[in-house]
Amino acid sequence: MLENEKISVHQFRVLVTFFTIGTSILVYPSILARYAKQDAWLVVIISIGIGLAVIWMFSKMTQFFPNMNLAQINEKVFGKWLGKFFTFFYVLVAFIASAELLYNSGTFFRLNLMLETPVEVLHIMTALLLVMAVRIGLETFSRAAELFWVIFILLFLMLLFVIPEIKFQNIQPVLENGVKPLLFPTLILVSVSTFNAIYLLMIFPASVSNPQGAQRAFYIGLIIGGMITFITTILAILVLGADLTARTRFPSYLLAQKINVGEFVKRIEVIVATMWFIAVYFKLILYFYACCLGLGQMLNLKSYRPVVLPMGMILTVFASMMFPNVVQQQKWDTEGMLMLSNIAGGFLPLLIVIVGYFRRRKA
């Protein structure tokens, strides 16, 4: 099963950028500061460099197996049954990642904006939007991403009003404890923003009108998303300080509360909430689309759409009972999900590239 939908290079670049940003601008500055302290901004720079190497590996996969999505590549490389097993693994990881994003969105709005609303209601509302977007297809939600990208950039520029609150002593001294404290948070950020981008291979290159242009767009989208994450992280460190950033679950939201321009532009944290929800929503769409498309491929269905609604219902229930508390979620992010991301976006793609290389040499 291969969907016949096609998107433009620009649309693919926007999707890559939204996927790279995802939860990074709201949640991960806190995680990075917890491990790297005032050097958290250096972690983002290093992760961008490593991410470009990972994207190169993904591009090699598509060159060895052109006009195939990730599920088809698995069956081509590993055979029918083992390939379906690995596709099931990817579907499972995509489902878990979708559930966690749904959990994060519900928790954020429940704690900060809708205090009296049950989190289950928030999950159902978001899941309805998710199911609708995935059912109408790749072309439609890609065009929507183009529109929301403009809104996202305008909202992000308003975050720069916090610049007068900057204190450069907050990032000093640089590399006080050396490079070692940067290694683990770099692995976390690369896993979330780049290793998991393996799911974009359900779209690239088979569903992009210009595969060569899409390859460049892959790199550009990663760099743009990485720079937005970098700006958000370094502003959080410069304004809030490393300690407060590490102790705050949503430092970017607190950062927006610090904005005060002439006693006129202030308390615009809802802008950060809107900006973050746009990025998370499209990352959630991409995860769930990859999950349903991979499941349809694995079951040899003519279309993935019949599984979207049932999977959406299961996803909503699973997200509501996924974590008993925040501590368990943070432990899962730095242990369980980290391991799954490394296998899905690191080990298996590397194995596929090696197999593809030797097959080409043999041919």
Rank of each mutant, 00 (worst) to 15 (best):
K283I: 04
I314S: 07
L157K: 15
R361A: 01
R135H: 03
L155Q: 08
L122F: 01
M132N: 15
R305N: 05
G296L: 04
F230L: 11
L92T: 12
F78M: 13
L157Q: 11
F95D: 09
T245S: 10
N210Q: 11
Q257S: 05
A97R: 10
V43F: 01
Y287R: 09
F288R: 09
T334N: 14
G51R: 15
L157Y: 07
M57E: 11
A290Q: 10
T62L: 06
E335M: 04
R135V: 06
T87F: 06
L238A: 08
A94G: 07
R110C: 00
A127L: 09
M61C: 08
A36D: 10
F108Y: 09
I96V: 11
V14A: 12
E335Y: 00
V14C: 09
N104W: 01
F64N: 13
F250K: 09
D333K: 13
I7Y: 03
I234C: 07
A145V: 02
Y357V: 01
R34A: 05
E3C: 00
L187Q: 14
L222G: 06
V353G: 08
I45K: 14
C291I: 01
H123V: 01
L70Q: 14
W41P: 07
F358S: 13
V272I: 15
Y103V: 00
T274C: 10
I343N: 13
I46A: 15
T140M: 12
M125P: 03
C292V: 04
T229C: 07
E75A: 03
H123E: 12
G225F: 08
R249Y: 00
N177G: 02
I96K: 15
N342I: 04
K362H: 06
K76F: 00
F64T: 07
L351N: 07
R13Q: 15
L284H: 07
V317L: 15
N67C: 03
